[in-house]
């Protein structure tokens, strides 16, 4: 894509670079500092006068032990597993369900389709502050409270996901579906063999959003989970600073690094899909 209008003058271009890279630095420095601090000793970390950039000594002398301590203090073994189970199950099932419903809204006939769709869209604006109380009570009746079920079942479909899938599936050509029908495919076969393969990028983007939202979810687990064995990562790591455990900046930073790695990893690997997928969100906007 070429810029058809005139380039701004050199000083303006330079100022733009400086301002944006300073901003980029404010995004990066805290994270770099988090990693560096996680390898320092407690005294090094709070020694303001000698704000050393790196931990002292050779790399083998750095306090790698902070990671072990963070892992043990927050009991991250079980907790990591919980987070992975919840995020993976929610991602796979919810993307599948949302795509199925999106297919129905985009291509199939259903009674009261428009009214249903509008109702569903309106639920997107409801603040969770109004519905979490009864969602919690409901989970209590179902026996989900303090169980990973509570973090999975309510997230098996989402209005945003259905909306997003519908918008994507609308772009699949009817001709392709007609051809499949003539071959005697059922609706589900059409969905599985024709629709899904042609909206792969959107499915990928939705999967990444869903994974991150689930991985980082904080409020709802705080409400429904009480016992340590059922904690997800954010809950467990948040507990590191609330007086339950030893107060130590390096250990906290090590914990923060541990929970940050998966999402940053997923983001950096799928960065393209992610940004493009996000950009699609606003197509109708």
């Amino acid at each position: 894509m070429s810029n058809v209008w005139a380039k701004p003058a050199l000083p303006w271009r330079m100022i733009s670079h400086v301002v944006i890279y300073i901003l980029v630095l404010t995004m990066l420095v805290p994270f770099a500092w988090m990693v560096v601090t996680s390898l320092k000793t407690d005294t090094e970390a709070i020694d303001v006068q000698q704000m050393a950039l790196l931990p002292s000594g050779p790399i083998t002398d750095w306090k790698w032990h902070n990671y072990i301590q963070a892992w043990e203090d927050a009991q991250l073994g079980q907790v990591y597993l919980n987070s992975v189970i919840v995020a993976v199950v929610v991602t796979i099932l919810s993307v599948l369900h949302n795509a199925l419903a999106g297919f129905a809204f985009a291509k199939l006939r259903m009674k009261a389709k428009n009214a249903t769709f509008i109702c569903m869209l309106m639920t997107m604006m409801l603040p969770y502050q109004v519905y979490f109380i009864f969602a919690y009570i409901l989970c209590g009746w179902l026996g989900y409270v303090d169980h990973l079920h509570a973090l999975i079942v309510p997230f098996l479909a989402s209005a945003f996901g259905i909306f997003y899938m519908k918008q994507s599936i609308l772009t699949v050509s009817d001709g392709l579906l007609e051809a499949g029908k003539l071959d005697g495919m059922t609706n589900f076969e059409l969905f599985w063999h024709v629709v899904l393969p042609s909206i792969k990028p959107a499915v990928g983007a939705l999967a990444i959003f869903t994974f991150m939202a689930s991985w980082n979810n904080f409020f709802w687990p705080l409400i429904v989970i009480d016992s340590q064995e059922q904690f997800t990562l954010p809950l467990s790591v948040a507990g590191l600073s609330s007086g339950l455990y030893v107060q130590s900046w390096p250990v906290q930073m090590a914990a923060a690094t541990i929970i940050t790695i998966p999402t940053v990893g997923v983001f950096l690997i799928f960065q393209r899909t992610f940004m493009q997928g996000l950009a699609l969100t606003g197509v109708k906007g």
Binding site: L100, A104, M110, N187
Partner: peptide, 8 residues
């Protein structure tokens, strides 16, 4: 007429 509901 209602095949959509089976999915949604």
């Amino acid at each position: 007429l209602n095949s959509g509901w089976a999915f949604a």
